[in-house]
Amino acid sequence: MSASPQGRETDFETLRSARFRKEREAGWRRLETLIATAEKSGVRGLSYQETLELSGLYRQAVNSLSAARAISMDKALLTYLDRLCARAYLVVYAPQESIGDAVWRLFAQGIPQAVRRSGVALLIGFLAMALGALIGYTLFQRDPAWFFTFVPAELADGRTPEATPAYLRQTLYDTSNRSGEVLGVFASYLFSHNTQVAILIFALGVFAALPSFILTFYNGLLLGPFAAIFINAGLGWDLFGWLSIHGVTELAAICIACAGGARLGLAVLLPGRKSRRASLRDSGRDAVKLLILAGVMLIVAGLVEGFLRQLIHPTEWRLIIGWGLGLIWLSWLTLAGRGGKAS
């Protein structure tokens, strides 16, 4: 404060709040220019000195805002300071973590820990698929007409109950020479299609988990009759290999996406002592990680399905690759991130 003796005259002429403003205005202007630079090119656009200055000026501006609310009735000034602080806040509290760090932490700790916390939801996910498959299988064995109820024609692609074993065998060991290019298209199609399905299953979970469960159940329901056709044709073992190579990963991914949805649904259905919104928010942390995991698994599954399954035919190798992958997933999810603090 300029309480100098000769300032007495001006003290009488200018208001206290106007003096308050005059003394600080230069700092605010400087903060404005720093913010403008940071908004344009990120905080990286500032030098070390400027960054220090930014945080100091931000704190000063917040102080000014607090003081101005107490002493000034100049609405324009109050609005200005409020907005200035808001803009500075957005620049100062921008995410600091580099994307690389965030991704590393996610895979090293976040995802495995989230999976280990989601036992019930995972049970629901896998149960949905298994029940679907079981019911589909038994219903089909009683009456093959069920097949046409469950499986849309375009998905069946000729693999109907009337199909000959020879045709069925051919679909398992597709020997028509596919070039690498075509396999690439196939893989990327599978990936983007399956991931969209997974995201859908996940996001629908928020509506009390039921839609997720139904979708996963339906996936199982498709699987059951298919398996039944091939088993009836004496191709059970071959189908097992054909499915295993990518299915261990892919079906698990669908179940995990369903588990993510179930976490959301359970949060809505059984919020406990928290409000529904708060409970949804808390479970959301784990649920999202489950979905990211499902996405990663689907990428791998898409690659395996698109390339390896078309290139590798011995059932033993298919089994080794498929279940080997499954073992890798399992050990990662159960062993990783046990030491670090929960995130």
Binding site: R29, E32, A76, Y80, D82, R87, R281
Partner: peptide
């Protein structure tokens, strides 16, 4: 709601004279 986020207008600060 799940992420606990809000969408706001970008604040614009214009200092008018006293």
């Amino acid at each position: 709601m799940i992420a606990d986020t809000l969408v706001v207008d970008m604040p614009k600060a214009v200092l008018m004279r006293d």
